[in-house]
Design a protein around this nucleic acid. Structure first.
Lengths: 226, 226
DNA sequence: ACACCCTGTAACAGTTTTGTAATCCCTTTG
DNA sequence: CAAAGGGATTACAAAACTGTTACAGGGTGT
């Protein structure tokens, strides 16, 4: 099931899009301004549809912010806009828009474009040829492998995802709640304590680097450069 | 270097596109009608740009013919057209267009779209017209044959496609979902577990090399150098 | 119509991963 | 210093995933 976030300050429009996209089988959330949207866990979405003209933060601005986050930079974006000049289109593409739909648009066209875009970006998942590393510890997103001194360390999926999150944001503290919302799917409810257990397991497996995963009492965990 | 084929009956337009695309670093061939284009070796191109309105065979018609050829069905297509109604856009997308540019268009917009599209579809590069091999196992894309120690192994189509995907990206992990979206057509809905069964069959047929197809629990499958 | 191949589905068994609960340990705070 | 609030560990059980086999439907060629 693909999840889509629609951000538009016209509530009616949000509802129309939500209704139509949902009847086409997508799961849709909406936000009325970029500020609200940025507070959400954007990581859960497979596609963002942003209105260009809205509130304090424009769709372009929001897209720029989103693209800076390594966790999100591959999330496709479709801009919705009344502006239809060439310059705007160029601008949208340059900051990473994957498509561009001008109002007034037909719902059918939107549905077709959304479908086409999701089909394309699904395939691209394997293109994120990224390797994050810290000293002799490195993780390869493509191969889903973890290496220490060029020796593979077998991590389970949850362990890998946690390490990826922490290592991709060195120094940043993640609360248990945040880790849960990023790595566990929405439908699953698990205890906070589950994180502890997974952290324990992860620390044990990565040997000395386990010491880099710091517990911030009362806050959560982070990977620190020590 | 990306190769592009432009098919348009307006010679001037062909030349303008060719000139601009070439100065942007692409290699460009042109054809003035679909009939000519279809006689060429289309396999060499990374992108087809088709005018909708031309000669006997329209761009749509040509696209349909191209998409039927399994060797070419992943080649992205951009339609060029003066028609700008909603129905046309829908039509284009349904038969596999990856983008759609209406005349009169600006060159800049074309360049941006071409770039964006090629970036998205680049993954398949290097897989065309080739023989991929790993030790004494090799597959020939043209002949659709699989050889082990110079002896042919009979694989079914699905088995062959899966092996081609995995072998062409050694080390990379492919989720079931990704394998489905790459090898099965969009309209067909099959279970994830179908992949498992096909993997089992494939492993059995390729003997010892079956051990190279590794299951990454929770992620999918990959072909590893062991 | 028959036989054969390809392919998807269902069912069951075997593994691995993951969550929970219980217990122990450490740190902070009054 | 002692109590209280987290956090770390461990073992166990539940859940999730995968491998394999058998079977059925669709298609093709004879």
């Amino acid at each position: 099931m693909n999840k889509i976030l629609v951000v538009d300050d016209e509530e009616d429009l949000c509802e129309i899009l939500k209704f139509n996209l949902e009847s086409d089988g997508y799961e849709v959330d909406t936000a009325l301004c970029a500020e609200d949207a940025l507070k959400m866990n954007l990581n859960q979405y497979d596609l963002l549809m942003l209105d260009v003209m809205m509130g304090e933060i424009s769709g372009y601005k929001m897209a720029q912010m989103v693209k800076k986050n390594p966790e999100l930079k591959n999330t496709p974006i479709i801009f919705l806009t009344a502006k239809d000049t060439e310059n705007d289109k160029i601008h949208g593409f340059n900051i990473g828009a994957d498509d561009y739909i001008s109002k007034p648009y037909s719902i059918r066209e939107v549905l077709v474009r959304v479908k086409a875009l999701l089909r394309r970006t699904k395939k691209d998942e394997g293109l994120k040829n990224e390797i994050i590393s810290y000293k002799s510890l490195s993780i390869d997103m493509n191969k889903k492998k973890t290496m220490i001194d060029n020796v593979e360390i077998a991590l389970t999926k949850k362990e890998f995802e946690i390490l990826k999150l922490l290592l991709g944001n060195i120094g940043q503290v993640f609360s248990r709640e945040e880790i849960l919302s990023r790595i566990w799917t929405d439908e699953v409810y698990v205890l906070d304590r589950t994180i502890d257990v997974n952290i324990t397991r992860l620390r044990k497996k990565i040997g000395d680097y386990g010491k880099n995963i710091i517990t911030r009492l009362g806050y959560g965990y982070c990977f620190e450069n020590i």
